[in-house]
Nucleic acid binder design. Sequence first.
DNA 1: ACCTGAACACCGTTCAAGT
DNA 2: ACCTGAACACCGTTCAAGT
Lengths: 207, 207
Amino acid sequence: MAEQKTAYHHGDLPRALKSAALDLISEHGVTGFTLREAARRAGVTHAAPYRHFSDKSALLAALAEDGFSELRRRLEEAADQAGDDPLARFVSLAPAYVRFAVEQPSYFRVMYGFDAPDKMKYERLGEADDAAFAVLVEGVRMAQEKAAFIHGDTQRIAILAWLMVHGLAHAHIDGALTRRGIDADNIDEALAQGSELMMRGFLAGSG
Amino acid sequence: MAEQKTAYHHGDLPRALKSAALDLISEHGVTGFTLREAARRAGVTHAAPYRHFSDKSALLAALAEDGFSELRRRLEEAADQAGDDPLARFVSLAPAYVRFAVEQPSYFRVMYGFDAPDKMKYERLGEADDAAFAVLVEGVRMAQEKAAFIHGDTQRIAILAWLMVHGLAHAHIDGALTRRGIDADNIDEALAQGSELMMRGFLAGSG
DNA sequence: ACCTGAACACCGTTCAAGT
DNA sequence: ACCTGAACACCGTTCAAGT
């Protein structure tokens, strides 16, 4: 998985660097990722990355951007597979989100860590984030329009829905849940219970 | 705020280092915190910290531990000021939690960042975390016992309640909310709406 | 256009030595 | 018991130079 150094030299160095960075993050966390080590693994000198990324955080920003694109793809896929019912589509987003976090924790870390690249500074990154979030907003909008979903500011409601799911994914990744009895075996169950609680709040006027 | 170097030399170097570290984190993030710079600000040589902390992450762990103690203090204070009604006590925890995150973002970052010190490795840190979380669990337990609160696993329900509030605080600190129209001016309003939604889910059998 | 190699100013950590 | 100073193996970033 890291032995094909030969092709990179006139090949796709940006891709090779991002791939190495992702490996490093899963091995040692974002803090443990190093531009020089990534260059080494890509079979290239420590100064070479600067031909493709202006600095370390630019590489992380590119990585996070890829992550948001993938997240968006997964959310859209989940909604599409859920069919036409607006509530079913909305509810399907939660497990898709959590599954992404669990299967791609390294992406999740660069996307949402405290020291993640600044979404204001890296414009394309901010746009990728917005595009993924837009799937959720659209889910709320349709549910408000065609189902008994709570009224009010669509974006605000989408944020509140996102928070719990995001919190679950986040806390699971950094082990906060495992220490409290929620692990890979029952995270789906916890998520289902959480979704149910949330939906009870979101369904306007239902008992 | 950083000019009293003179007293430290035979004074309280651990405290001085933690204080400098906290300043550095608020200036440059956890990533930007450096043991050498903290030593410099404490008026001491770069090797001196090793007499008090085994390494960099041990200092961060001590800092996070302080943060959890302070959070616990605030949660207990909020509940006590809310009086005797179990629901009022429970509901009062949310704004107290968010206020801590907003007022002490540097503590929050060391406590809950992805690369935060390992709560398994640093035993006292894990205990401080548990002690803060226990306030929330106790709130749920009392609400279940003396009010129309949803039944089921107390700890599990406490986690779900925590997730949304934690997610709100977390997302606010790293700017994810500001980009979506929630800032210091209306975070209380968003929190209130979120709490209301949550409570609708938590209150068993109510319409 | 893309990469190398030397250079600079930083780190974390260790260790002998000082008081 | 606590701190210093030198040392080592690392970083991120820049820049002249090579192809």
